[in-house]
Deep mutational scan, measured.
Amino acid sequence: MFKRLMMVALLVIAPLSAATAADQTNPYKLMDEAAQKTFDRLKNEQPQIRANPDYLRTIVDQELLPYVQVKYAGALVLGQYYKSATPAQREAYFAAFREYLKQAYGQALAMYHGQTYQIAPEQPLGDKTIVPIRVTIIDPNGRPPVRLDFQWRKNSQTGNWQAYDMIAEGVSMITTKQNEWGTLLRTKGIDGLTAQLKSISQQKITLEEKK
């Protein structure tokens, strides 16, 4: 169930391209415009997507990853294993993690069937560096609404905000991946996880038929 919630949630996290980005210092504006741009692209490019579902990787690479804190999220997933990894191991892992996100997020976007969304009203940021933004996803086919909290983090150097995690039903996506990959990290280390991520990233994206 959580895996499905995570995939549905990713439908609204794909941010804007650099040329049309919203105010990078306001995570609420980023979330709002990102959702609108993403849904528009999914709707307008269905012919290309249906002809070649792996085209979704391109959308992810162009529109999402430049505005997601990939390395920060990847380091959180590694936890204690990050500090013990060599620079070469980290570089290989982050490259594999990025390719994994292209496949995983692309597969999530393949679930698009006309969903709509509501974003919580903007709250004062103050001096906060981590801000959760509640998004409610509404399914046109009558499924119950899904309420999610996207975690946005302020870059201490640039002042810009980027998304790095999502919490559904009190469970963090980062925590879920830590639990899912924990045994592999304990037995085969970061190299074993890197190899698995490379394998997963090679899987073809498949479209979910409308139910």
Rank of each mutant, 00 (worst) to 15 (best):
M1C: 02
F2I: 12
R4S: 13
R4P: 02
L5A: 02
L5V: 04
V8R: 01
A9C: 11
A9N: 01
L10A: 05
L11M: 09
V12D: 00
I13S: 03
I13P: 01
A14M: 10
P15G: 12
P15R: 05
L16I: 12
L16P: 08
S17P: 09
A19Y: 03
T20E: 07
A21R: 10
T25P: 09
N26Q: 10
P27S: 06
P27E: 04
Y28R: 06
K29E: 15
K29N: 14
M31P: 00
E33T: 04
A34K: 05
A34H: 02
A35Q: 06
A35R: 02
Q36R: 09
K37S: 06
F39V: 02
R41F: 02
R41M: 07
K43A: 13
E45I: 08
Q46H: 08
P47C: 08
P47R: 10
Q48C: 06
I49K: 05
I49R: 06
I49E: 05
R50I: 09
A51D: 10
P53E: 13
Y55W: 06
Y55E: 09
R57H: 14
R57Y: 14
V60D: 03
V60L: 04
D61N: 09
L65A: 06
L65W: 12
L65G: 07
V70F: 07
K71P: 06
Y72Q: 00
Y72A: 01
A73W: 01
G74L: 00
Y82Q: 01
K83S: 10
S84K: 11
A85P: 06
T86G: 09
Q89A: 13
R90W: 03
E91A: 14
E91G: 10
A92V: 13
A92C: 14
Y93L: 05
Y93T: 03
Y93R: 00
F94R: 12
F94D: 02
F94L: 07
E99F: 09
E99P: 14
Y100E: 14
K102G: 14
Q103F: 07
Q103S: 15
A104V: 07
A104P: 03
Y105P: 01
Q107R: 06
Q107T: 14
A108K: 06
A108G: 04
L109M: 07
L109G: 13
M111H: 12
M111Y: 11
Y112P: 03
H113K: 03
G114D: 09
T116N: 14
T116W: 11
Y117G: 06
Y117I: 08
Y117A: 01
Q118T: 15
Q118S: 12
I119E: 06
I119M: 07
P121E: 13
E122K: 15
Q123R: 13
L125S: 14
L125I: 07
D127V: 06
D127I: 12
I130T: 02
I133H: 11
I133W: 08
I133T: 06
I133A: 00
R134T: 03
R134E: 02
V135M: 06
T136H: 13
I137E: 15
N141F: 08
G142N: 06
P145T: 06
V146C: 01
R147P: 01
L148V: 01
L148W: 06
D149E: 09
D149L: 03
D149G: 06
D149V: 06
R153A: 00
R153G: 04
N155R: 01
S156M: 03
Q157I: 08
T158M: 15
G159F: 10
G159A: 00
G159L: 12
W161R: 03
W161K: 04
Y164I: 02
D165L: 00
M166G: 01
I167A: 00
I167Q: 05
I167R: 09
A168Q: 07
A168W: 06
E169F: 00
E169W: 04
E169V: 00
E169L: 02
E169Q: 03
G170T: 02
T175Q: 07
N179G: 05
W181A: 04
T187C: 06
G189D: 08
I190W: 09
I190L: 07
D191V: 06
D191I: 06
G192K: 11
I200A: 02
Q202L: 12
E208W: 12
E209W: 14
